[in-house]
């Protein structure tokens, strides 16, 4: 059970949160211009990496805000938490 530091509320138990999959996948601005393959790439393809992964999380049973998390999927270490729209940490 993670202890997640919501950027708006502070440290809370994982059960207050909902995971929302890979982060930084922007919805295409002009979907109609895309080929089926390009659209499928946006729609279905996710990296699911072993190591540091950037993810979306939602404080669903709290402030309801979405934010991003850099998490090492091999040991579940939360490396960083940052707000929506902010750039992922380089380290």
């Amino acid at each position: 059970m993670f202890l997640i530091n919501c950027p708006y509320c502070g440290e809370r138990d994982q059960q207050e949160f909902k995971a929302g999959g890979e982060a930084h996948i922007e919805r295409p601005k002009q979907p109609t211009e895309l080929s089926d393959d390009e659209w499928a790439e946006y729609l279905f393809m996710r990296k699911n990496i072993k190591g540091v992964q950037f993810e979306r999380w939602n404080h669903a049973h709290g402030c309801r805000k979405w934010f991003n998390m850099a998490r090492d999927t091999s040991n579940d270490e939360i490396k960083a938490i940052y707000k929506m729209g902010e750039k992922p940490p380089t380290q």
Partner: peptide
């Protein structure tokens, strides 16, 4: 509600 909030906060802020 969750889905609409998601789009509002992340795709169309």
């Amino acid at each position: 509600l969750g889905k609409l909030e998601d789009y509002l906060q992340t795709e169309w802020p």
